[in-house]
Amino acid sequence: MSGNGNAAATAEENSPKMRVIRVGTRKSQLARIQTDSVVATLKASYPGLQFEIIAMSTTGDKILDTALSKIGEKSLFTKELEHALEKNEVDLVVHSLKDLPTVLPPGFTIGAICKRENPHDAVVFHPKFVGKTLETLPEKSVVGTSSLRRAAQLQRKFPHLEFRSIRGNLNTRLRKLDEQQEFSAIILATAGLQRMGWHNRVGQILHPEECMYAVGQGALGVEVRAKDQDILDLVGVLHDPETLLRCIAERAFLRHLEGGCSVPVAVHTAMKDGQLYLTGGVWSLDGSDSIQETMQATIHVPAQHEDGPEDDPQLVGITARNIPRGPQLAAQNLGISLANLLLSKGAKNILDVARQLNDAH
């Protein structure tokens, strides 16, 4: 009898209710805020589980004197976190989706994509230029951005401005803007500013005609071990179906173009009346040469937790077992079709030249 009692006690200790789920994140304040929001949602869904947040620095956090596009290494903000995932030191990792490459290392998958916040870019102005827009900034004003995508589009749109690289986390960039006289304004992701509670610093939100956004911008991705079915089931509740389908289309477009950090590629997606609209573009580094096109596809946005595919093969690095396969494939095909259209119009040449120029500098 006593033996059975011990077995029952052991089973209770090993039951999922007692389990601590370890969540990996970057150390920056924004990353911690984003991770806290994901953990809060998981806690609400699984009140019996405990969650421990483990923060670590990544290569991208450490190399702050070089433009991201020049470092010449993929997975700048993800490699150390993936290493911890691989060694079973954490069970899942919360990322900004735009930091996750469209091809993940073997053994990993994006197990959830959370509801997207505003994906557009924002302009934050130096205190002396508050009330201005990019259009009304004085001639030769210097605007800071760490992104080739932003610089290429904005140089084309605002030729009277000069664009220079600015690195560091959000706090560091804002301090550089406010305390030094080098920059009249800087460009940042609206979602990051909003998550930090800095709505009052948003001086201008850039519309798609001015600057399309990065693939996955404004959404959070939760990376897990691809074979860890328990954790895949656990994080599945975080999937937002519309965000998922938009981001599958965007990531398929980028992957098929073979774009990345070192080339200016941008997108804009919208879901309306059962249609998914995808606009994508590529630019030369100075913005003088560009190709942009829009395509659409009829896609039914499923309700969360309709029964999805059981075999769960990944699409552009994403596993969404609780979302039907048909809409996911339709979104992926839309991204591939748009990429093929741009490639047929000469996108590869623009991107190759951009890559060579970026590598040469």
Rank of each mutant, 00 (worst) to 15 (best):
Cys114Asn: 10
His256Phe: 15
Val143Glu: 04
Asp65His: 09
Arg321Ser: 11
Glu250Ala: 00
Leu232Gln: 03
Leu49Trp: 08
Ile336Ser: 15
Lys74Ser: 05
Glu82Cys: 06
Ala151Met: 04
Phe163Met: 11
Thr41Cys: 10
Gly197Asp: 03
His83Cys: 13
Glu117Gln: 08
Ser37Asn: 14
Gln50Tyr: 12
Leu154Ala: 06
Gly48Lys: 14
Leu342Val: 15
Asn358Thr: 15
Lys132Tyr: 11
Val38Gly: 02
Gln328Trp: 14
Leu188Tyr: 01
His83Pro: 05
Tyr46Ala: 07
His300Arg: 05
Pro47Thr: 11
Gln332Thr: 14
Ile205Asp: 14
Leu329Gln: 15
Cys247Ala: 15
Ile323Glu: 06
Pro127Val: 07
Lys227Trp: 07
Pro302Gln: 05
Phe253Cys: 01
Ile113Trp: 05
Pro127Ile: 14
Ile205Lys: 08
Ser69Gly: 10
Lys128Ser: 12
Leu244Gly: 02
Cys247Glu: 05
Met56Val: 07
Ala360Arg: 06
Leu68Tyr: 11
Ser146His: 06
Ala112Asn: 00
Ser165Cys: 11
Leu81Lys: 03
Lys79Met: 09
His268Gly: 02
Asp240Asn: 15
Lys70Met: 13
Val124Thr: 06
Gln356Cys: 00
Arg321Gly: 13
Gly60Thr: 07
Leu220Pro: 00
Ala219His: 00
Gly259Leu: 11
Arg149Glu: 01
Pro127Asn: 00
Thr66Trp: 09
Leu244Cys: 13
Gly197Glu: 05
Ser57Lys: 00
His160Arg: 14
Leu161Ala: 05
Gly131Val: 12
Glu250Thr: 04
Asp178His: 12
His207Ala: 14
Gly144Trp: 04
Ala270Asp: 12
Val301Ser: 07
Val316Gly: 08
Val123His: 03
Pro264Lys: 00
Glu179Pro: 06
Gly280Ala: 14
Pro324Lys: 06
Gly326Leu: 05
Arg116Leu: 04
Gly144Arg: 07
Gln217Leu: 01
Thr133His: 07
Leu220Gly: 04
Asp273Ile: 04
Glu73Met: 08
Glu179Leu: 09
Ile248Gly: 00
Glu210Lys: 02
Lys70Thr: 07
Ser288Cys: 10
Asn171His: 10
Thr294Ala: 06
Leu220Thr: 11
Ile110Gln: 00
Leu343Asn: 15
Asp352Ala: 12
Gly197Ile: 00
Gly60Leu: 00
Met295Lys: 12
Ala354Val: 07
Ala84Pro: 06
Ala347Gly: 01
Ala151Ser: 10
Asn200His: 14
Leu276Ala: 05
Arg225Cys: 11
Lys348Glu: 15
Arg251Thr: 05
Asp228Tyr: 03
Val142Ala: 12
Val222Phe: 01
Leu338Pro: 10
Ala266Arg: 04
Gly218Val: 04
Arg201Trp: 09
Thr243Ser: 10
Ile187Thr: 05
Pro313Arg: 13
His207Ile: 07
Thr102Gln: 06
Val222Tyr: 02
Arg173Ser: 01
Pro313Asp: 03
Leu92Arg: 02
Leu81Tyr: 03
Asn349Ser: 06
Ser288Arg: 03
Gly326Val: 10
Leu100Cys: 15
Arg175Tyr: 06
Glu135Arg: 13
Glu80Tyr: 02
Gln181Ser: 10
Asp289Val: 13
Pro119Ser: 11
Val123Arg: 01
Ala297Ile: 00
Glu242Cys: 03
Asp228Gly: 12
Pro119Cys: 11
Lys176Phe: 13
Arg149Gln: 03
Arg149Lys: 03
Gly168Ser: 01
Thr109Ala: 07
Ile54Gly: 06
Cys211Glu: 01
Asp99Glu: 06
Thr59Met: 13
Thr298Gly: 03
Leu92Pro: 02
Ala226Cys: 12
Ala55Trp: 08
Asp312Ala: 11
Phe253His: 05
Glu89Ser: 13
Ala303Ile: 15
Phe129Lys: 04
Met295Gln: 05
Thr109Asp: 03
Ser284Asp: 05
Asn169Arg: 11
Leu76Arg: 11
Gly107Lys: 07
Leu100Arg: 00
Ser165Thr: 14
Val202Arg: 09
Asp311Ile: 04
Leu245Asp: 00
Gly221Val: 03
Tyr213Phe: 04
Ala339Arg: 04
Gln229Tyr: 14
Lys87Glu: 09
Gln332Asp: 08
Glu223Pro: 04
Ser69Cys: 13
Glu162Asp: 10
Gly192Thr: 04
Leu342Gly: 06
Gln181Val: 06
His239Gln: 08
Ser262Met: 00
Glu242Ser: 04
Val263Lys: 15
Lys115Thr: 12
Asn349Cys: 08
Leu64Thr: 11
Ala112Tyr: 04
Gly346His: 05
Arg225Thr: 07
Thr133Glu: 12
Leu278Ala: 05
Ser344Cys: 10
Thr190Gly: 11
Val143Trp: 03
Gly60Phe: 00
Glu135Cys: 09
Lys87His: 07
Val124Glu: 04
Lys128Arg: 08
Gly281Pro: 01
Leu341Phe: 07
Ile187Asn: 06
Leu238Gly: 01
Leu188Gln: 06
Gln181Trp: 10
His268Gln: 14
Asp307Trp: 15
Phe51Thr: 13
Leu315Asn: 04
Leu170Trp: 01
Asp286Ala: 07
Phe158Cys: 12
Trp198Ala: 13
Leu148His: 04
Ile350Met: 06
Ala360Ser: 13
Pro313Lys: 08
Phe51Lys: 05
Ser45Ala: 11
Val142Cys: 13
Ile53Met: 08
Asn118Gly: 04
Val301His: 03
Ser165Pro: 14
Asp352Gln: 11
Thr319Gly: 07
Glu242Val: 14
Glu258Arg: 02
Glu135Pro: 11
Gln153Cys: 08
Val38Pro: 00
Gly317Cys: 14
Ser146Val: 08
Leu104Ile: 12
Pro313Asn: 08
Ala219Tyr: 04
Val215Ser: 14
Leu97Trp: 00
Ala189Cys: 10
Ile299Phe: 14
Asp307Ala: 00
Arg167Val: 09
Pro313Ile: 15
Glu139Arg: 08
Val237Ala: 04
Leu238His: 00
Leu315Lys: 07
Ala219Pro: 01
Leu338His: 00
Asn118Pro: 11
Phe108Glu: 15
Asp91Met: 03
Phe129Ile: 08
Ile166Arg: 04
Val222Pro: 00
Tyr277Val: 04
Lys227Ala: 15
Thr133Asp: 13
Ala360Val: 15
Lys227His: 05
Gly281Lys: 02
Glu89His: 09
Leu100Lys: 02
Val142Asp: 09
Thr172Leu: 10
Arg116Ile: 02
Ile166Gly: 04
Gln181Arg: 12
Glu52Tyr: 08
Thr172Ala: 13
Gln204Arg: 09
Ile248Pro: 01
His120Leu: 13
Ser337Pro: 03
Lys98Thr: 02
Ser57His: 04
Trp283Ile: 06
Ile231Glu: 02
Gly335Asp: 07
Ser75Leu: 10
Phe108Thr: 14
Trp198Pro: 06
Thr102His: 15
Thr41Asn: 09
Glu117Ser: 06
Arg164Gly: 10
Leu161Ile: 09
Phe51His: 09
Gly60Met: 00
Met271Asn: 07
Lys157Pro: 08
Ser141Asn: 14
Lys227Gly: 04
Ser69Arg: 11
Phe158Thr: 13
Gly216Asp: 05
Thr58Gly: 01
Asn169Gln: 04
His83Asn: 13
Thr102Asp: 06
Asp312Thr: 01
Ile291Val: 07
Gly203Thr: 01
Arg116Glu: 05
Cys114Ala: 06
Ala67Gln: 08
Leu170Ser: 06
Glu86Gly: 08
Lys128Leu: 12
Ile291Pro: 09
Val130Phe: 09
Asp121Ala: 02
Leu68Ser: 10
Arg164Ala: 11
Pro313Tyr: 15
His207Thr: 13
Met212Gln: 03
Gly168Thr: 01
Leu342Tyr: 13
Arg173Cys: 00
Glu89Met: 09
Ser165Asp: 02
Asp311Val: 11
Val130Pro: 12
Leu49Ala: 14
Gln155Thr: 11
Cys114His: 05
His239Tyr: 07
Gly131Thr: 09
Asp228Cys: 12
Ile186Tyr: 03
Val94Asn: 04
Val130Asp: 15
Leu177Glu: 00
Leu170Asn: 10
Asn88Lys: 14
Glu135Gly: 09
Glu162Ile: 11
Asp121Phe: 01
Val93Trp: 02
Ala44Leu: 10
Gly111Tyr: 02
Leu357Ile: 12
Ile166Glu: 02
Glu117Leu: 09
Ala84Asp: 08
Lys43Glu: 09
Gly317Lys: 00
Gln328His: 12
Asn171Ile: 12
His305Val: 10
Glu293Arg: 07
Glu293Ala: 11
Pro309Cys: 04
Thr66Pro: 10
Gly280Ile: 00
Leu85His: 00
Arg225Val: 07
Leu232Asp: 05
His83Lys: 12
Asn118Asp: 15
Lys70Gly: 11
Pro309Phe: 14
Ile248Val: 08
Ile63Glu: 01
Leu188Lys: 00
Thr243Gly: 11
Lys43Asn: 09
Asp240Ser: 02
Leu188Pro: 05
Asn322Ile: 09
Leu232Ile: 14
Met212Cys: 01
Ser96Met: 05
Leu285Cys: 07
Ile186Gly: 06
Ile166Met: 13
Gln314Pro: 11
Gly131Lys: 08
